[in-house]
Simulated assay, not measured.
Amino acid sequence: MSSQAPIPALDEASKRELEGFLEQEQAKAKLQASIHELTNTCWNTCITGSISSKFSKGEAACLENCVDRFLDSSLYIVRQIEAQKQQI
């Protein structure tokens, strides 16, 4: 015997609201995954010494360049996907 109440059927406005919420949450999850990938990639590439309170000049420059290239690449990919969608 379950103590949970049955889930009521949703009206159209509630369905649209739920779909919008789910889309927002999926977009947030994608952004978090991209940030995690960016952090992992750039950290492993640029941080070669021991961890201290400050990055060396070389590490700081490498991190800045890595982030810039990662963002440029991501933007390029998004633009290419959007261009392909428009051709369909």
Rank of each mutant, 00 (worst) to 15 (best):
M1T: 06
M1L: 10
S2I: 06
S3D: 12
S3R: 10
S3H: 14
Q4P: 00
Q4R: 15
A5R: 15
A5W: 12
P6G: 13
P6Y: 08
I7T: 14
I7E: 15
I7F: 12
P8C: 08
P8D: 08
P8L: 11
L10I: 06
L10E: 10
L10D: 06
L10W: 05
D11T: 09
S14L: 10
S14V: 06
S14C: 07
S14A: 15
K15T: 04
E17G: 07
E17K: 03
E19H: 04
E19M: 09
G20W: 03
G20T: 06
F21H: 11
F21L: 13
F21R: 15
L22A: 11
E23Q: 11
E23R: 08
Q24F: 08
Q24G: 11
E25C: 04
Q26E: 13
Q26V: 02
A27R: 09
A27C: 03
A27V: 05
K30A: 15
K30L: 13
L31H: 10
L31T: 07
L31D: 12
S34G: 11
I35Y: 03
E37Q: 11
E37A: 10
T39G: 06
T39I: 05
T41M: 06
T41R: 08
T41D: 08
C42Y: 02
C42G: 04
W43S: 13
N44V: 05
N44G: 10
T45I: 03
T45W: 04
T45L: 06
T45Y: 04
C46Y: 00
C46V: 02
I47L: 12
I47K: 06
I47G: 00
T48L: 14
G49Q: 08
S50L: 13
S50M: 14
S52V: 09
S52Q: 15
S52W: 08
K54Y: 12
K54D: 12
S56Q: 06
E59P: 01
E59M: 02
A60N: 10
A61F: 04
C62S: 05
C62Y: 01
C62G: 01
N65Q: 05
V67D: 00
R69P: 00
F70K: 02
F70P: 00
S73K: 09
S74Y: 02
S74D: 07
L75E: 12
I77L: 14
I77D: 13
I77Y: 07
V78G: 02
V78D: 13
R79F: 07
R79A: 14
R79G: 05
Q80M: 14
Q80F: 05
E82Y: 09
Q84Y: 09
I88P: 00
I88Q: 14
I88G: 09
